[in-house]
Computed example of a mutant assay.
Amino acid sequence: MEYYISNFSNVKKEEVKIKGSKGSFIQWLVTKDHGAHYAVRRFTLEPNGVIAPHVHKYQETVIILKGSTKVCVGREVKELHENDFIFIDSGVEHAFYNGMDPLEFICIIDYVDDMSIHPVDRSCI
C-alpha cells in the first residue's frame, strides 16, 4: 500500500483490556496491515480513566493531544499536559491515570517478536 487515509471516526474503538484498566479506549490507526513497520494508536480516557500498570517488550512514544495525565514510569510519577510527549523503553513498567477532564493521546510503537502485555500488580500513585 503506497498510502492510507482515514479519520478517527472510521476506526473501531475498543476498551483497553489490561487488568485493572477502566474508562480507557484504543484505536489502531496505522498498523502492519497498512504496510507500516510500526503502529500508531489513539487512546482516549474518560474522566478518572486508568490504563493500569503493565510492561511489554516494545518501545513506545506517547504524545498528549488533549488533557493531562499522571504517568507512572518505572518508580516515578510524572505529570504530562497537552503537547507533552514521553518515550518509554521496552521492559519499563508504566501506567496512565487521568484526572477530571477527557484525555486523548497518540501512541507510536514498534513491532517486536513478542507483542504481549503483562499486567503489573502494583499502584504507583
Rank of each mutant, 00 (worst) to 15 (best):
Y4H: 12
Y4M: 09
I5H: 00
I5K: 08
S6D: 12
S6A: 01
F8H: 14
F8K: 15
F8N: 14
S9R: 10
N10P: 01
N10G: 03
K13T: 01
K13M: 01
E14P: 02
K17W: 05
I18D: 10
K19N: 01
G20I: 08
G20F: 07
S21Q: 00
S24Y: 06
S24V: 01
S24D: 05
F25G: 10
I26L: 13
I26P: 03
I26E: 05
W28S: 03
L29M: 04
K32F: 04
D33M: 00
H34S: 10
H34M: 13
H34G: 12
G35K: 07
G35H: 02
A36P: 10
A36N: 08
A36V: 10
H37W: 00
Y38M: 09
V40D: 01
V40S: 00
R41I: 02
R41T: 02
R41V: 03
P47T: 06
G49K: 04
G49I: 06
V50R: 13
I51T: 08
P53A: 07
H54M: 09
H56M: 09
H56C: 00
K57C: 11
Y58T: 03
Q59G: 13
Q59L: 02
E60D: 08
E60W: 03
T61H: 11
I63Y: 08
I64P: 03
L65E: 13
K66F: 00
G67T: 06
G67A: 01
S68P: 13
K70V: 00
V71C: 06
V73N: 11
K78S: 03
L80E: 07
L80D: 10
E82N: 14
E82S: 15
N83E: 01
D84A: 11
D89I: 03
S90Q: 11
G91Q: 09
V92W: 08
E93I: 12
H94Q: 14
A95W: 14
Y97I: 00
Y97S: 08
Y97M: 04
M100Q: 14
M100K: 12
P102S: 12
L103I: 05
L103W: 12
E104G: 05
F105I: 10
C107F: 03
C107P: 14
I108P: 02
V112M: 13
D114V: 10
M115I: 04
I117M: 07
H118T: 15
H118C: 07
D121T: 04
S123D: 11
C124D: 12
I125N: 15
I125K: 15
